[in-house]
């Protein structure tokens, strides 16, 4: 069952096709990644999901019915560029953002207290936003996004600017929300992050969806002939070896593509024979990053698309 279905969305600004016939499905209870480069059309798509922009054509179906203004009550949106009223205090800020979603009262207040405790901000209730550190402001922003208990969460680069401890805390909360059956949509251009968090993805480039589906099946499809390797030693001899098509170094891991699917065994043997210490050898695995580069990088030199000004 799909929680959200996007059908043939189109949006043009002047002569620029920001979103050009986009369709994808977000299954119930999934973490969905909308990935693409800066200016690919992610934000425009998200704005259409939430009725901020009215699409030129196409529709967004929410649990079987087209979205209306009421969808806004069920959604929590954390945009990449954050903003809070600097002179408001923490508590008023949280209450205001709940109130515009139609939520107020005891229940919301206790939820707010709970989250403030969890983020260790309970003693900052009466502080003005401008007196908080950037990281703390971000935490308040996140609480404001989820305080009204939304069914849908749309998070645009939620971890940027957070320290490792808070990143972990945030991830824990996101996983909790997923387990509660919330639909979570990530928009990001960070592939390794999308890879770790998402189970469904849609890859958007130049306003078009160029790949979508379950991450596992996409990886399986693109992953044969591919080996994900972690090692100690020297593998430069592979560069011109007849069974190897391509070696790509990503720092921590190296992706090796062999010419034929059955050659992965031969590759492992080759590595051992050459005294390379193999720490990890993942056959038929490919990183999202590589898929992304493969699909998007190919036509990189095509005519540069005029970027939509307001995204």
């Amino acid at each position: 069952m799909n929680a959200l279905e996007v059908k043939n969305l189109k949006k043009t600004f002047g002569s620029v096709k920001a979103v050009d016939d986009i369709s994808f499905q977000v299954p119930e209870g999934s973490v969905f990644g909308l990935i693409g480069r800066n200016g690919a059309g992610k934000t425009t798509t998200i704005r259409m999901l939430m009725n901020i922009y009215i699409p030129d054509s196409g529709e967004v179906i929410l649990r079987g019915a087209p979205v209306t203004e009421e969808f806004k009550q069920k959604v929590g949106y954390l945009p990449e560029e954050r903003g809070l009223y600097k002179k408001m205090n923490v508590w008023d800020t949280l209450m205001f953002f709940a109130e515009v979603k139609g939520r107020s009262g005891k229940e919301i207040e206790s939820r707010a207290n709970e989250y403030l405790k969890r983020f260790q901000l309970i003693d900052r209730k009466t502080s003005k936003i401008q007196d908080l550190s950037k990281g703390n402001q971000q935490k308040i922003q996140f609480i404001a996004t989820i305080l009204h208990d939304p069914d849908f969460l749309i998070l645009d680069e939620p971890f940027s600017g957070l320290d490792p401890i808070n990143t972990d805390l945030l991830r824990q909360i996101i996983i909790d929300l997923k387990n509660q059956g919330k639909v979570i949509i990530f928009s990001t251009h960070l592939m390794d992050f999308a890879e770790r968090m998402c189970d469904q993805i849609a890859l958007i480039d130049k306003g078009k969806i160029i790949l979508s589906g379950a991450l596992s099946s996409i990886k399986a499809e693109y992953g044969n002939r591919n080996v994900n390797l972690a090692y100690n030693g020297d593998i430069s001899f592979l560069k011109n070896h007849p069974i190897v098509e391509k070696v790509q170094d990503f720092g921590n891991t190296t992706e090796i593509t062999v010419r034929e699917e059955f050659q992965t065994q031969a590759l492992l043997k080759l590595l051992i024979e050459n005294n390379v210490m193999v720490r990890r050898f993942n056959a038929n695995d490919i990183s999202l990053q590589e898929i992304f580069i493969k699909l998007v990088g190919d036509n990189n030199n095509a005519v540069q698309r005029e970027e939509v000004r307001n995204v």
Binding site: Y77, L78, P79, R82, K86, V100
Partner: peptide, 16 residues
């Protein structure tokens, strides 16, 4: 200020 600090983006996800 609302434009400058990007609050509009969040507000518009709640109100039109």
């Amino acid at each position: 200020e609302e434009k400058n600090t990007k609050i509009v983006e969040i507000l518009l996800s709640s109100v039109n």
